[in-house]
Write a protein that binds this DNA or RNA. Structure first.
Lengths: 187, 187
DNA sequence: GTCTATATAATGATAGAC
DNA sequence: GTCTATCATTATATAGAC
């Protein structure tokens, strides 16, 4: 009777990677099985709801990762400028300098949009809320802060997409570099 | 012996719609068959290379559409401001006010990235080149013009993505409205 | 140029042994 | 908790009649 080889969270991380790379439709159980080292039946033991349940769990898990590795600087005490710098640094690491897709975008455009709309919407909202609150800390009026924050989230998504399209990671890096200054601009 | 029911270009337009909505992996031949009214075998008669050939033809076709319905204002004689306004108006129509995905983004994130990388790259380059040339017409220095143009293309892609994510088309409209002014800003 | 029928492989998902 | 074996379904793709 074989013991579990890797932790559930490690399994989820590997599944996340498959979803991120291949999209929801493209993430076949064969790929997932290979990436996790678990047979099909084992996967269904851990996720009775099949692929869709995996998807929901992946969103939960990536929420934790985002929070720990990307969003934490936005919650830190410190000058807004410094917060934003740390945030973009975290983003750069999280997205492999522009080489990695964002799970959100991938899910939206590869068949997971309806299934995971709740998770997707709430993740975007969280991002915008948090970023916006940092801008308000910097005395930017509420409405302007929200508009800028929402816009920045879109820019990041677009930059990741176009980086891939142009096969030029420098594109993403450039956008990231400019972000803090623009978000805090007085104009 | 049944005669062809719709023109090849009409067939391609309907296939385009399926790719756009469901992504490359999600666009099954069943869906395509239903959308075009052609049986599986008929589809292979028109596209012996199967789904991948359909994809290449779809890119050719959408290139024509883009050119005619979106990019033409950028080539028109007239003030840059007016050109850009017409361009964003065309974009708004083309993307259904933010309700429609962009085929480029969808293909990138749903399994078509490797297969169609040539088409994707060249389309993005064309967009940036053309937009950039309008900005130079407005006396914006070459390098700045290129950076702004590239950034704007990313913003549009991001706006389409986030609009879907937030289920708020207003987001896309807002970005579009602000674009001309920002592209031509003197700051 | 379209059709019916079919070939073949891969998909998501289960049953039951250990 | 993992495995082998198998299920029904759907996928892409083809052959051949009309």
């Amino acid at each position: 009777m074989p013991a579990p080889k890797i932790s559930r969270e490690e399994v989820l991380d590997r599944i996340t990677e498959i979803f991120r790379q291949y999209g929801y439709e493209g993430a076949s159980l064969s790929l997932i099985s290979k990436a996790t080292g678990l047979g099909r039946a084992s996967l269904y033991h851990h996720f009775p709801g099949g692929k869709e349940e995996m998807g929901h769990e992946v969103f939960r898990r990536i929420g934790e990762h985002l929070d720990r590795n990307v969003l934490s600087p936005l919650r830190a005490k410190g000058s807004p400028k410094k917060c934003l710098k740390n945030w973009t640094q975290g983003l750069n690491l999280f997205y492999g300098g522009g080489s990695k897709n964002c799970l959100l975008g991938t899910m939206i455009l590869s068949g997971g949009s309806d299934r995971f709309s709740k998770e997707i919407t709430s993740t975007f909202r969280t991002l915008i809320d948090l970023l916006s609150s940092v801008l308000e800390e910097a005395k930017i009026p509420h409405n302007l802060a929200r508009r800028r924050a929402a816009r920045a989230i879109g820019e990041i998504q677009g930059a990741l997409l176009v980086s891939r399209g142009l096969e030029d990671e420098g594109y993403f890096q450039q956008i990231l570099e400019d972000l803090p200054g623009e978000l805090l601009s007085v104009k």
